[in-house]
Amino acid sequence: MLLVEDDDNLRFAVAAALRAAGLAVDETADLPAADEALYVTAYDCAVFDRMLPGGDAAAYVARLRSAGRAVPVLFLTARDTVADRVEGFTSGGDDYLVKPFAVPELVARVRSLCRRAQLVRPPVHHVGDLEIDTARRQVRRRGLLLTLTSREFAVLEVLAARADQAVPRADLIESCWDEMAEPQSNVLEVLVSQLRRKLGDPPLIRTVRGVGYRLAADGS
Rank of each mutant, 00 (worst) to 15 (best):
L2M: 13
L3P: 09
L3A: 11
V4Q: 08
V4H: 02
D6K: 04
D7V: 13
D7T: 09
D8H: 12
N9Q: 09
L10G: 00
R11S: 15
A13D: 12
A15L: 07
A15H: 01
A16T: 13
A17W: 07
L18W: 10
L18P: 02
L18N: 06
A20W: 02
V25I: 14
V25S: 01
D26Y: 04
A29Y: 05
A29M: 07
D30I: 06
D30E: 13
D30Q: 13
L31H: 10
E36K: 07
A37I: 04
A37S: 11
T41F: 10
T41A: 03
A42Y: 01
A42H: 08
D44G: 10
V47Q: 05
F48W: 06
M51Y: 04
L52F: 11
G54T: 05
D56T: 09
D56K: 02
A58E: 08
V61W: 11
V61C: 08
A62F: 06
R63A: 15
R63E: 15
A70F: 03
P72N: 00
V73M: 00
L74C: 10
L76D: 06
T77M: 01
T77D: 02
R79H: 13
T81E: 02
D84L: 01
R85A: 05
V86M: 12
E87T: 09
E87A: 15
G92F: 04
G93K: 04
Y96W: 07
Y96N: 09
Y96S: 11
Y96T: 03
Y96A: 10
V98H: 03
P100A: 09
F101G: 10
A102P: 01
P104W: 12
P104N: 03
L106P: 04
R109K: 12
R109F: 07
R109C: 08
R111D: 10
R111Y: 07
Q118M: 14
Q118F: 02
R121P: 00
P122D: 15
V124S: 08
V124Y: 09
V127C: 07
D129K: 05
D129Y: 00
T134V: 13
T134C: 14
A135G: 12
A135F: 11
R137I: 06
V139Q: 09
V139T: 12
R141E: 06
R142D: 14
G143I: 07
L144C: 03
T147C: 09
S150K: 06
E152A: 13
F153L: 14
A154H: 11
E157F: 02
V158C: 04
L159G: 00
L159S: 00
A161F: 05
R162E: 15
A163L: 03
D164H: 14
Q165L: 14
V167Q: 01
V167P: 00
V167C: 00
V167K: 00
D171I: 03
L172P: 03
I173G: 07
E174P: 00
D178A: 12
Q184M: 06
Q184S: 14
S185H: 11
N186A: 13
L188K: 07
L188A: 08
E189I: 06
V190N: 10
V190D: 14
V190Y: 12
V192T: 05
L195H: 07
L195I: 10
R197A: 14
K198T: 11
L199P: 04
G200D: 13
G200V: 09
D201K: 07
D201T: 14
P203Q: 13
L204F: 02
L204S: 09
T207C: 05
V208T: 12
V211S: 10
Y213D: 08
R214H: 06
A216T: 08
G219W: 08
